[in-house]
Structures are given as C-alpha cells and as structure tokens.
C-alpha cells in the first residue's frame, strides 16, 4: 500500500519526488543551469542539490568589433541550496527501461 502511494504520480511535484537521490537537471533564470543529485525539495521548488555543476551562459560584447561573444562558465559546488523562485524547469533523469 505504502509503496503504491509513494510511486503514484498525480501532480507535477510527484515526478520530482521520484527523482530524490537521483541526478537532475535544473534550468534557472539568468541563463543558469545546474546538474546535481536531488537531496531535498519543497512545494516552492526550493532544493538542496549535491555534487553540483553550474553552467552560466553569458553574452559579452567585444569592445572593438561589437561582436557578441558567447561565454559559458562552469563550476562545481559540493552542496547547494537553490531558491525555488529562480527555477524555470526541472528534468528528472532519463530512464532507459
């Protein structure tokens, strides 16, 4: 019974519950993306991720040619609390089965 209830998907956040302890992809505002293991979340989509890789995409304009330069900056953080109001989407890990 309990396990059936645990695995039922009735609303969007149920899919996130099934991603607990799995690596997920999170797209955030201001051109940021995270990949990390989901350790906690709440109804606001506040989250704690572990072993996180953040990718920031920025467009700079060259001072002389005025050309757009697309730059991606990567960094790793062991544990990160992410405030939910910046989250655009969460993608659960792809299952091959």
């Amino acid at each position: 019974m309990a396990s059936e209830e645990e695995s039922a998907v009735k609303e969007p956040l149920d899919l996130i519950r099934l991603s607990l302890d799995e690596r997920i992809y999170v797209k955030l505002r201001s051109d940021r993306e995270l990949r990390g293991k989901l350790h906690a979340y709440d109804q606001h989509l506040n989250m704690i991720l572990g072993d996180v890789e953040e990718v920031v995409t920025s467009i700079e304009i060259d001072d002389e040619t005025y050309e757009e330069i697309v730059r991606t900056t990567k960094r790793n953080v062991p544990f990160l609390f992410v405030r939910g109001d910046g989250v655009i989407l969460v993608s659960p890990p792809l299952r091959t089965a």
């Binding site: 645990e6 607990l20 302890d21 350790h39 906690a40 990160l80």
Partner: peptide, 26 residues
Amino acid sequence: SVVRYVQLPPEGVDVELLHDATRREA
C-alpha cells in the same frame, strides 16, 4: 527573496535526514 543560492558546508548536510524530511513534507 533576493537569495539565489546558499553554498552549504558538507558536514552540515545529512543526506538521509533530508530525504526523510522531504518525503514527509511531500
């Protein structure tokens, strides 16, 4: 409301505790 992230100290993260608390909250 102006916080984007908080970098947490690894010794301050009990993964099992967080999982349980999250399931209870859900």
